[in-house]
C-alpha cells in the first residue's frame, strides 16, 4: 500500500513535468519525482517497530546472543545512506536547474516553455 502511494507520488511528479508549461513547475515536478524515489528507497529499508542499526559498547559483550534478534529487528541502514547521497545530488541539480530557469527568463522574458523554442527541426 505504501509503495502504491509512493508510485502515485512518482506519477504525479511525472505528470507535472510532462503537462505543465511553466518552467518552474516542470522543475517542481522533477523534484517531486526525486522525492518519490527517495521515499521509495527509505521504505525499502524500513521495518515496522525496527530499531536503529547501531550497536552500543555495552551490547558488544553479549553480541552472540542478541545477533539474530538484532538483525531481525533493525532497519536496513544502506538505503538511508543512499538517500542522503541522492538528496545531495538532487540539490546540486536543482540549483543548476533553477539557475538555468533564471538565466533563460532573463533572455526570453517568459517562463512558458512552449514559447522557448528557437531550437527545432
Amino acid at each position: 500500500m505504501a509503495y502504491a502511494w509512493c508510485f502515485l507520488l512518482f506519477m504525479t511528479g511525472l505528470y507535472c513535468a510532462v503537462v505543465k508549461k511553466n518552467m518552474v513547475k516542470i522543475v517542481l515536478g522533477i523534484i517531486i519525482m526525486e522525492y518519490a524515489v527517495n521515499i521509495f528507497l527509505i521504505m525499502l529499508g524500513y521495518r515496522i517497530g525496527g530499531v536503529a542499526p547501531i550497536v552500543g559498547k555495552g551490547e558488544l559483550a553479549g553480541i552472540d546472543k542478541v545477533t539474530s534478534a538484532f538483525v531481525n529487528n533493525c532497519v536496513d541502514p544502506l538505503p538511508q545512506a543512499l538517500v542522503l547521497t541522492s538528496i545531495v545530488i538532487s540539490l546540486g541539480s536543482l540549483a543548476l536547474m533553477i539557475a538555468l530557469c533564471i538565466r533563460t527568463y532573463e533572455r526570453y522574458g517568459t517562463f512558458d516553455i512552449t514559447e522557448i523554442r528557437r531550437l527545432r527541426g
Binding site: 519525482m33 541539480s93 526570453y108 528557437r118
Partner: peptide
C-alpha cells in the same frame, strides 16, 4: 544555449 541546456537538463534528470 540556455534553452538547450534547460531542455537537456529536464530530460536528463528524468
Amino acid at each position: 544555449e540556455l534553452e538547450a541546456a534547460f531542455k537537456y537538463m529536464v530530460l536528463g534528470t528524468i
